[in-house]
Amino acid sequence: MIELDCRGLPCPRPVIELARQILAVEVGEVLAVVADDPAAAYDIPAWCRMREQEYVGADLADDGVPRYLVRRLG
């Protein structure tokens, strides 16, 4: 799974990185975004809804930073 390291990036940078890199994964595959920006918790699901991708959920990276999982649908 491709993992984007967005630690330390303020909003809206994690969402911008997600939008840029989603094309790097195949349709049906999952891209992970590791981001400590508190807005990412809301804006990554919102991005998925607006861009018609699937928000899979969130877990934690090894260092405890939230990791958001997005499946490319198209």
Binding site: C11, P38, Y42, D43, A46, W47, R49
Partner: peptide, 24 residues
Amino acid sequence: GSACTASTLEPSHVLAAMGALTHG
């Protein structure tokens, strides 16, 4: 209502509760 200026600032709790985009 965005809090993009500093990553320590929480985004708008109103937009967050609505599930709306909080940046921009």
